[in-house]
């Protein structure tokens, strides 16, 4: 399909319009995206129409997403877990630090020692592995984590699935007391479950992880509500 020839201009324009509106069938959508990657005139037609169409959407009432969305983005990209709203606070802390440092620098030699003291201890990644299996002893998932990381990586082995309109949720099982929710395991072969704190802190006194079947957003009660299908002991290499 050579869409950049002049006589095809109208057809391209129509396809681009419907692409931007979103009514294009999936097969045509995929082809257009593929063609646009190597054909500048097609790419231009698509972005021109995206610009026209976007004007329509400028008055949709905004909805603030839950804080977990940002945490998940940061975890998936492996960025520093700075929350957008914490920026100012952190900035102030940094400012205080630099002020202190500036005063200290008056004392010359003191500066070196001070800066050395402020440097955070280097984090040596030390892995942690959990093999999760069901009552049939077949391996269903493997979870790994590193000290200092704020997420666990979970790999589904075989075809474990929570079923329609359900989700798997990961739990920390302490030696005594109730299971602690770690988060819903996103669908996919290898996924990340973000944690509030570094792995070694979250799992410091936890011998076992478990997986239960829950509603899509996770257990509404903070305790497992569906069957606990898989569990496994935490093996630490540190």
């Amino acid at each position: 399909m050579n869409l950049s020839r002049p006589d095809r201009h109208d057809r391209l324009d129509r396809l681009a319009a419907e692409f931007a509106l979103g009514t294009t069938p999936p097969r045509v959508r995929r082809r257009l995206v593929a063609i646009a990657r190597r054909d500048r005139s097609v790419a231009a037609a698509l972005s021109d129409w995206e610009r026209r169409i976007a004007v329509l959407g400028e008055r949709v009432p905004p909805v603030t997403p839950a804080p977990r969305v940002w945490r998940n983005i940061v975890a998936r990209l492996g960025l520093e877990p700075e929350r957008p709203s914490e920026r100012e606070v952190k900035g102030q802390r940094n400012a205080a630090f630099w002020r202190t440092l500036a005063i200290a620098s008056l004392a010359g030699v003191v500066v070196l020692g001070f800066a050395e003291w402020r440097r955070p201890p280097s984090v040596v990644p030390a892995p942690l592995v959990v093999v999760l299996s069901g009552s049939d002893a077949k391996v269903a998932m493997i979870a790994t984590g590193s000290r200092g990381q704020r997420y666990l990586t979970v790999r589904t082995v075989g075809n474990a699935s929570p079923g329609a309109d359900k989700a798997f949720e990961l739990w920390a099982l302490p030696q005594a007391g109730s299971p602690q929710p770690l988060g819903v395991i996103p669908e996919g072969g290898i996924v990340r479950v973000p944690l509030q704190n570094p792995v070694d802190e979250v799992l410091s006194n936890i011998p076992t992880l478990a997986v239960s079947v829950e509603p899509p957003g996770g257990s509404p009660t903070g305790k497992p509500t569906g069957p606990v299908l898989y569990s496994g002991a935490i093996e630490r290499m540190y």
């Binding site: 979103g22 959407g57 009432p61 909805v63 603030t64 969305v69 940002w70 983005i73 957008p84 920026r87």
Partner: peptide, 23 residues
């Protein structure tokens, strides 16, 4: 720049989330 990314998210996400929910 991770800070710019955080600010971009804070600024644009309510509008983008609203668009996504509707669809």
């Amino acid at each position: 720049d991770q800070r710019a990314f955080a600010e971009l998210y804070r600024t644009a996400s309510p509008h983008l989330y609203a668009i996504a929910i509707r669809i």
